[in-house]
């Protein structure tokens, strides 16, 4: 037992560095001062890079307006159709005017997620501060929209008319709680997924140089590298799926606001 601890301690001191959360640190890009609200940080850079990618694909890519689209234009059109169909399918035709908003959320998340997969990059979507702003933003928007459109009828969302009368207050309380939990689950789901995947990858990456330190590395290093590959593939999938999930939930909440009567 004593020897084992020694091995671990030795490994750590000789260069295996475990900092799976270091990649999530926010630091100023220039200088070393405190982070003010306007300071340009690594988070700023990767958010703005996502915006530049959006502009590249959707503005420059579509500039040709070709009848037979170029590749980039095709990607933009696929994204447009994908999100627009999602909005219209879930919320109905009257939800189509919220399509730019939903598209903004989808593209911001999907490009942040994918850029975050580049080695050495930073994932803005792994931060609860970022996803909470989007989650709470969506929550406030759909709640106010529902109240504005339907007034007190919007509260019918919580009052199940097809449930037995005795159960209705109970159901209303459950519905109310689940309604207010929405922004929490909405934002933590995204940040948690992205953060967990990146952290796991980093842990395996820390084990990869084991072969330089100890004989056990013959076994540990290939396993780690295979694991990084597998998790990276999974993370590519997660990057899309979480953006999709966030977007479709936004559409579902929007539908509740537009048609509270189910």
């Amino acid at each position: 037992m004593k020897r084992k601890i020694d091995v671990a301690g030795e490994a750590h001191s000789e260069g295996l560095s475990f900092h799976p959360l270091q990649q999530f640190e926010v630091h100023p890009l220039f200088g070393d001062g405190p982070i003010h609200w306007y300071t340009i940080t690594n988070a700023t850079v990767w958010l703005l890079l996502a915006a530049i990618c959006v502009i590249g694909v959707f503005v420059l890519g579509s500039a040709g307006r070709k009848l037979v689209p170029s590749r980039m234009q095709s990607v933009g059109e696929l994204g447009y159709d994908f999100v627009r169909n999602m909005v219209v399918d879930v919320t109905g035709e009257d939800g189509a005017k919220y399509f730019p908003m939903v598209m903004t959320l989808f593209l911001t998340i999907v490009f942040s997620n994918i850029l975050g997969l580049l080695p050495g990059s930073f994932s803005p979507t792994s931060h609860i501060a970022v996803t909470a702003v989007m989650g709470i933003g969506v929550f406030l928007f759909v709640t106010l929209l529902g109240l504005y459109k339907h007034g007190m009828h919007f509260l019918g969302l919580f009052w199940m008319k097809d449930a037995p009368l005795i159960l209705r207050p109970v159901i209303a309380i459950i519905e109310l709680i689940s309604y207010f939990v929405r922004p929490v689950s909405h934002s933590i789901r995204l940040a948690g997924n992205i953060m967990a995947g990146h952290a796991v990858m980093k842990v395996f990456a820390a084990f990869a140089p084991m072969i330089l330190i100890s004989g056990i590395g013959v076994l540990v290093t290939p396993v780690s590298i295979l694991a990084i590959t597998a998790i990276y593939a999974l993370e590519v999938l997660v990057a899309f799926i979480q953006a999709y999930v966030f977007t479709i939930l936004t559409c579902v909440y929007l539908k509740d606001a537009l048609h509270p009567g189910h």
């Binding site: 405190p34 306007y38 988070a43 703005l48 931060h127 501060a129 702003v133 989007m134």
Partner: peptide, 14 residues
């Protein structure tokens, strides 16, 4: 300490 910074730049991006 960097919440304000992240929220501000997220808002700019959005």
């Amino acid at each position: 300490t960097h919440f304000a910074n992240q929220i501000f730049w997220l808002a700019v991006t959005l």
